[in-house]
């Protein structure tokens, strides 16, 4: 039976054991040490080589959780929804990791990360781990290391990961590469936003939320979205769902989660899952390789005396820039 293939794997397959024992840091992570997890996330964010080693060790323990992205314009209620979802998921016995990404200031490089303000939870509850991340100049609204941090949360034992980002079209495309279900949050009377999103609106979300449905206009907005969704091409039999929620009342939260689970089910029993995972692995490998090459390039392109004299020759017009660049390229290739 096709149905539940991935679910069965999730439950039945034992965590693969690495042949060598885990390093002390990795051991602390899998044993639930929150301080160690907090620190390792920082090390991963700053790209420390030791952290890369731990990621390698922990990798067999990742890839089994449900990763849900929540994006949408500023202030639509993404964090408030995360808060309500945390309460709902607690009732379902889930262990939840949250990553909330906010943009870094392009001017100072600093950031005020304010998503935590909306979260109301028992600080002694070990079934939730919430981490705020600044985008640190990464274009598109996710941060460079979001994918790695998801893996750390999984290795820590979280079975559900929520990723909040401030959305523009760009982010939504990127979230595709890390989340299996993508929620786009909108509010009533967001006419212009929807207009600008419309072009690709139905490729970027699996579930649409019309939040703040306690305000007038929600029914209308939800109806418009549903009508548009009906016109989209289904993928594995799935057309985007539209759910109305209010985090104030609250209402619609169980319905929202049910839509997420239905989408996961459709993914698992569909034919596109393997293709999606393949595309992701392909992209990740490419970007890791590119980062590596970029590093070597930066290294190789540092100004040297040989480079200086090449530039001088071009200035003195004893050499044309085309020949000079070909010479430089041949040298560069040897360095790489």
């Amino acid at each position: 039976m096709k149905k539940g293939v991935r679910g069965a794997r999730r439950q039945a397959r034992p965590v693969p054991r690495a042949s060598s024992p885990l390093s002390p840091v990795a051991r602390r992570i899998v044993s639930g040490d929150r301080r160690a997890l907090g620190r390792l996330i920082s090390d991963v964010e700053s790209g420390r080589p030791e952290a890369r080693d731990v990621l390698k060790e922990l990798h067999p323990r990742t890839g089994r959780s449900l990763v849900v992205g929540l994006s949408g314009p500023l202030g639509v209620g993404k964090s408030s929804l995360v808060n309500r979802l945390l309460q709902h998921l607690k009732g379902l016995g889930k262990r939840v990791g949250v990553i909330a990404v906010d943009p870094s200031s392009p001017f100072s490089g600093g950031a005020v990360l304010g998503d935590r303000v909306r979260i109301d939870r028992d600080p002694s509850d070990p079934s939730v781990f919430f981490r705020s991340m600044a985008s640190r100049g990464h274009p598109g609204g996710l941060s460079q290391s979001t994918r790695e941090v998801i893996r750390l949360l999984e290795a820590f034992g979280m079975d559900t990961i929520l990723v909040e980002t401030v959305g523009s079209g760009q982010v939504d495309v990127e979230i595709h590469s890390i989340a299996s279900t993508r929620i786009v949050v909108l509010v009533p009377h967001l006419g212009d936003e929807v207009q600008t999103l419309k072009a690709g609106l139905f490729e970027i979300a699996d579930v649409f939320v019309v939040n703040k449905c306690d305000l007038p206009g929600a029914d209308r907005a939800a109806r418009d979205l549903s009508e548009l969704a009906q016109l989209s091409t289904p993928v594995d039999g799935w057309r985007p769902r539209v759910v109305q929620t209010s985090t104030l009342l609250p209402s619609g939260i169980p319905e929202l989660w049910a839509a997420v689970e239905e989408h996961e089910q459709a993914l698992r029993s569909g034919t596109q899952l393997r293709a999606r995972l393949t595309e992701r692995a392909d992209q990740e490998l490419r970007s890791l390789l590119l980062a590596r090459v970029q590093g070597s390039l930066d290294q190789a392109l540092r100004p040297t005396p040989a480079w200086g004299s090449l530039v001088s020759e071009v200035v003195d017009r004893t050499l044309d820039p085309y020949t000079a660049s070909e010479k430089a390229y041949r040298r560069l290739i040897q360095c790489l």
Binding site: R34, R35, L37, G38, R39, I41, S42, S104, S105, F107, S108, G109, G110, A111, V112, L113, G114, R116, V117, P123, S124, F129, F130, R131, S132, A134
Partner: peptide
């Protein structure tokens, strides 16, 4: 805001925090 403008990442936890809330947040946010 001043710390942000000086290039720092500031996690704003907001009002009505218990000491337990604060320390747990500090640990998670490292």
């Amino acid at each position: 805001r001043a710390l942000r403008d000086a290039g720092m990442e500031v996690i704003y936890a907001g009002l009505r925090q218990t000491p337990e809330d604060i320390v747990e947040a500090a640990v998670e946010e490292d």
